[in-house]
Every structure is written in structure tokens, then in C-alpha cells.
Design a protein around this nucleic acid. Structure first.
Length: 585
RNA sequence: GCGCCCGUAGCUCAGUUGGAUAGAGUGUCGGCCUCCGAAGCCGAAGGUCGCAGGUUCGAAUCCUGCCGGGCGCGCCA
């Protein structure tokens, strides 16, 4: 309908240009929006106001000329000019009925759009280091990323979902060393656990598993392990120097065995993360290994290219990338003076790789604490003469957990954090996913556990699910009364749906495809969450005002068609958000 | 200090990319089950859109400067 009205206005503008009423060179972006107030008709256009400057006439006058030049349409019953120069369209109510049949015919495909035109998008999200289980901060990235991908896919984009696995680098060495030390502890060695080690219980679990499988293969006397180490932070020294020395010690003493522990640790945690996300309803097309970049030489090749194009230099024994040439605050190290490449170096290679795979746009979903990282990655892409706008970084603020009014503190390294799994166990997948995506990602999220698991009207998830379950219940009631829904009969009588509540519901349902398109283009799944609440509200209101199972067979079937369509829209929308649509609750 | 994000009803948040009288939920108060599920519905009250300027037909939205909160500013990842 929006498109239809835009076409009418476009023709009107063209006619006025041809007869000289409007300057021939005038151009205008025709915007049609739904009105908020029924007295303003169904749709409104601000075209006349946008043309005031170019036409050098007051907007209302232009509006009159536009309306006079408007082609006839059987869908438009009246056109008004109102306010400062709005053109208000009143649509023939009959045109609104067709949406019911559209929905019933399309089923799960209702709302699918071709606006993405098969554009290839790479969405990278979560990508938490495999150094421990996912926590509730990662959960928000997972819920947002998952919903965003489904949304984009529904809008006709070709979406590739990817998890970047940081399976190389120092953090993984710290993890491997932590596992080994816990393993030694379990064998009864008198080990002092480093301040900077991973202290979570899961490290002990992996160590126990290692002991079960490998016995005492990695056992080394504590005296040899702890001999002559630089002091740890707690001992008045430097925690980084201490842990680095311990890593080195582990590698020396264990030889090839070190790699086995490292791999065992990564695999154990990655398997856990995969299960966790799977149970959360989030799936990936690819798990992209950082180590594959270093081992294939992709990182070295990227650095060599930067070197030959003059974008790196040496200073203080390290290799620096001139990111400040591309708007970053300062230059960044890509190779440390000890010869090791930095995390940033692999990330350069990774993002180069993304664009070289031919994606039109790469979307990264990051925690907001990484925002300072954006300019340097974009700088790297520019250094390779890629358009930095081909990378879009969506920053997701952390969720702040509350239990009632009590705020819960978290920190990964100390091992004191609420895991995503604990959250799912406590509030359930549906509530967790909905709570995460009902806010704009850049908004801080207050996540109240008590509210999310409360089985009451306070809980916004139930409001939507209840609407769906309630509709299902109507059909069960119908069967109990020995009646059957006849959709063909309902379609014939569809114009009997003239009640205000029915009209409200019809317009709400008709908006669904528009919401999919705007939410997808804005990369904002929360718009869909809010819309679905409106649909549920329109339905609940209707439900309370009218009985569907009436004696009048034609009217009954028409109403059943309408609520069947409502159920379909709720189910389609909830599916995109990763929330189930139960038939009973 | 510099950079990014946020500031809208008591609380939690939307606000269709600059449109008409700023909206929901929740909380408070008052109504609605002999009737397809009351996890629902209807109504009332509640606002200096952080503050001050500017841009224009028109600003919660865009620009500038302040105020307040969060985050970042490593040869960590």
C-alpha cells in the first residue's frame, strides 16, 4: 500500500513538472508513513513540505496542486490536506481485508521480503575466547546476533553466521597452564596458583578429566615447577611476568605434552560453548579459527603487504602499524619486540580475509568495552584500500543482572560470574532471549532475574506467548463443540469483519512486512519485539470485546480466519527472535 | 585530559531515521469472569524529552557548549 501511494504521488509530481507548476529539476524523496491518529486518515505524506524550498511556495498550496494532479485509485476513498501541508490518504476498508488471505496463503513465509536482494552479509558474533564458559554478557551478544541474522535472512539477505575462535595467543597459554597447575594440585603437588591464572571451577573439571584420561603422564614435582619464578603480584611482584614465566616453564618441562594440554583445554571449552549456544537456539555456519590464520601464514602475508605499501615501521624493537594515518588516535603494535604477533595482527588478517571472501558487508557484534578497537580495524581495511564502510561494528552494552533490587557483580578472571547456562536454567531460554533483544543493543540492559522467571503478567514474554496459546485454545474449544473451521467460507465472508477491534488487528497484521524491512535495514531486532507486543495487545483487546465462536457461521469463519492469521504473524515474529510459540501454557 | 555510548512519566524503556496533541510496560488508584484461557481487558493519574543556545515551515531526533552516568585510552586479548 505504501508503494502504491508513493507511485501515485510520483506521478503527480511528474505531471506538475511537465506543465511547469513545479521546476523541472525539482527532486523529492517521497515518504509515506502510517498515521498515528485515525482523523489523519490511514497514511500521510510530507511531500509538499519537502518541496517548499524548490517550488518557492507555501506547502499547503503545493499540497493542493499535488492532490489535484493525483491519478485515480480504487483503493483511495479520500485525500485530505491537513496541518502544515500533510497529504492524508483514506484507504478503502475493503483493501485491508486481503491481508488475511495473504497471510494464510504465505504461512511461514509471510513477511519475507526481497529487500536484501541476496546481498551477502557476514555476521560475526559472540566470539568469546575459549577460556571459559559463556557468561550473561556473551548471552546478549548471542541473542542479538542470532535475532539479527534471522531478521536479515527474512528480509532477503544472504547471511553467513560466524564465530571467531581465539584459539591462539597468550590467553590460551594462560588457560593451558592453569589447567596443568590444577591437574598437579589434584595429584597432590604443593602448587601455588598464580594470581593471573583462570580460577573458575571449570578449570578444575578439565584438569580432572585430563587426569582420568592421561593418568600421571604430565606430573612433574612441584619444586621443579615453582623453582626460581619471578614474584607474583600478591608477593609484591608483577603478575604478568610471573604468569609468563610459568607458561614458559610449562612448555619447557612438558615438551610436546604442553600442546596436548592446550588442545584438550580448547576443545573441552569450545564443545561446551557450542552446546550452550545450540541450546540457546543460536547456530553458526562457520567457526573460524584464529590459529588457522597464523598457521596458514595469512597473518604474515597481511603484514608483508602492509610493509610493502609502507604502512608499518619499526620502533623500540617492535613493528608498528600506522593506524594514525587513517584516523586512529595512535599507531599500534602488530609484532612485539619478543617476535610474537599481537592479537591485533591476527585481527587485521581476519578482517582482510572477510572482505576477500566477497561479502558486501561484514557486521561485527562486539561488547561495548571493545569500542576503542573499532578505529584501528577500520584503519587496517583502509590500508588495504578497502572501503571501511564495508565493516559495521555493532556495540552491545553489557547486561546488568539484578536479583530483585540486588545488583550482581561479575568478573571473568576471578571465576565469579553468572554463566549463560545458569541464566537459562533459572529463567528459561524464551525469557532470556526476549529480555536480551527487547532493548536497543546500545542501551544498558537491566536484567531482573526475578522478573524474567516470574510466571505472571509482569513478564512481557508471556504476554506474547499467551496470545499465541490463547488462539490455539480457541480452535480446541471449537473442536470440543463439534465445529470445524472452514477457511474458504471465512474468506467469502471476510468483509464482515467491520468491528473497530477487527480493523485495528487487520492494520497491525498488515504492518508486519514493513516492520521486517525497517528493522532489518536498521539492524534492530528490538523493533520487531515491540511490534509483536502491539499485535498481541490488539488481539487480547479483540478477544475481550468479542466472541469468535458465534452461531453465525459465515461471521464465525471470517473471525477464525483473522485469528489464524494473527497466530501466524506471532509465530513468524517469535521465531525470528528465537522465542517459542507454545500452543498451551 | 581525549574518544565512544547513554540521559524521555516514580521505575524499566519505545519513539517509524526531521513531522501533526511525546507513547508503552510496570507501579498507584478505580472498574470487568454465569460467557472461546483474568498470564487478559477498560479507565484515571503521572512530562521543563538533563540544561542553554543554534539550524527551519517544523527538533526528543541534526549542530555547538555545558551538567550527570557508563566504557575505553597496553609491545593484554
Amino acid at each position: 500500500m505504501k508503494k502504491h501511494l508513493a507511485q501515485l504521488l510520483e506521478q503527480a509530481v511528474q505531471r506538475l513538472q511537465e506543465d511547469g507548476t513545479l521546476p523541472a529539476e525539482a527532486s523529492v524523496d517521497i515518504q509515506i508513513e502510517r498515521t498515528r491518529d485515525k482523523s489523519h486518515g490511514d497514511f500521510a505524506a510530507n511531500t509538499a513540505m519537502l518541496l517548499t524550498k524548490q517550488a518557492k511556495r507555501p506547502p499547503r498550496q503545493i499540497a493542493e496542486q499535488l492532490v489535484a494532479a493525483l491519478p485515480e485509485s480504487d483503493k483511495v476513498v479520500r485525500v485530505d490536506i491537513a496541518g502544515p501541508g500533510f497529504i492524508n490518504f483514506f484507504i478503502d476498508p475493503k483493501a485491508g481485508f486481503s491481508v488475511v488471505q495473504d497471510i494464510l496463503d504465505a504461512g511461514e513465509d509471510y513477511g519475507r521480503s526481497t529487500i536484501g536482494a541476496g546481498q551477502r552479509l557476514l555476521v560475526e558474533f559472540v566470539s568469546a575466547n575459549p577460556t571459559g564458559p559463556l557468561h550473561v554478557g556473551h548471552g546478549r551478544g548471542a541473542a542479538f546476533g542470532g535475532a539479527l541474522c534471522s531478521l536479515l535472512s527474512a528480509a532477503g539477505y544472504d547471511v553467513h553466521r560466524e564465530y571467531y575462535v581465539n584459539d591462539a595467543g597468550r590467553q590460551m597459554d594462560i588457560l593451558a597452564t592453569s589447567i596443568w597447575l590444577r591437574y598437579l594440585e589434584a595429584l597432590g603437588e604443593a602448587i601455588r596458583f598464580p594470581d593471573n591464572g583462570y580460577r573458575g571451577e571449570y578449570v578444575k573439571d578439565i584438569a580432572a578429566e585430563l587426569q582420568r584420561k592421561e593418568g600421571e603422564r604430565f606430573r612433574i614435582a612441584a619444586e621443579k615447577v615453582m623453582a626460581e619464578l619471578p614474584a607474583d603480584a600478591e608477593q609484591g611482584g608483577d603478575k604478568e611476568a610471573h604468569i609468563d614465566a610459568l607458561i614458559l616453564r610449562a612448555q619447557e618441562l612438558l615438551g610436546a605434552g604442553y600442546r596436548d594440554i592446550h588442545t584438550a583445554g580448547t576443545e573441552a571449552i569450545l564443545a561446551d560453548i557450542r552446546d550452550d549456544l545450540h541450546e540457546f537456539g543460536v547456530g553458526y555456519d562457520e567457526w573460524f579459527s584464529e590459529r588457522s590464520l597464523t598457521e596458514s601464514g595469512a597473518v604474515e602475508r597481511a603484514l608483508a603487504r602492509l610493509e610493502s605499501s609502507g604502512h608499518v615501521y619499526e620502533k623500540d624493537g617492535a613493528l608498528w602499524f600506522r593506524s594514525s594515518d587513517f584516523g586512529d588516535e595512535k599507531d599500534r603494535v602488530v609484532r612485539r619486540d619478543n617476535g610474537q604477533i599481537t592479537y591485533f595482527a591476527s585481527d587485521i588478517a581476519y578482517h582482510l580475509n572477510k572482505l576477500e571472501r566477497g561479502f558486501d558487508l561484514a557486521i561485527d557484534v562486539w561488547g561495548a568495552d571493545h569500542h576503542g578497537y573499532v578505529p584501528r580495524v577500520k584503519a587496517a581495511l583502509q590500508a588495504f584500500e578497502h572501503n571501511p564502510e564495508q565493516l559495521e561494528v555493532r556495540l552491545v552494552q553489557f547486561a546488568i543482572l539484578y536479583r530483585g533490587s540486588e545488583r550482581m557483580q561479575m568478573s571473568t578472571r576471578s571465576g565469579k560470574f553468572v554463566t549463560l547456562r545458569e541464566l537459562r536454567d533459572e529463567v528459561g531460554k524464551d525469557a532470556a532471549r526476549f529480555f536480551y533483544v527487547m532493548r536497543r543493543p546500545e542501551q544498558h540492559l537491566d536484567f531482573d532475574l526475578e522478573l524474567a522467571k516470574s510466571q505472571s503478567s509482569d513478564n512481557p514474554v508471556y504476554y506474547l506467548q499467551y496470545a499465541h496459546a490463547r488462539i490455539c485454545s480457541v480452535y480446541r474449544q471449537l473442536a470440543e463443540k463439534g465445529l470445524a473451521h472452514d477457511p474458504a467460507r471465512g474468506a467469502q465472508a471476510i468483509e464482515r469483519l467491520t468491528e473497530d477491534h477487527e480493523q485495528m488487528l487487520l492494520t497491525a497484521l498488515a504492518r508486519y512486512p514493513e516492520v521486517i524491512e525497517t528493522a532489518a535495514q536498521a539492524h534492530e531486532p528490538h523493533q520487531l519485539a515491540h511490534y509483536l507486543r502491539e499485535v498481541a495487545n490488539a488481539f487480547h483487546t479483540y478477544y475481550n470485546a468479542h466472541t469468535f465462536i458465534v452461531d453465525d457461521e459465515a461471521l464465525r469463519n471470517a473471525r477464525l480466519n483473522l485469528i489464524a492469521a494473527t497466530r501466524q504473524v506471532l509465530a513468524n515474529g517469535l521465531a525470528i527472535l528465537g522465542v517459542s510459540a507454545p500452543e498451551a501454557m
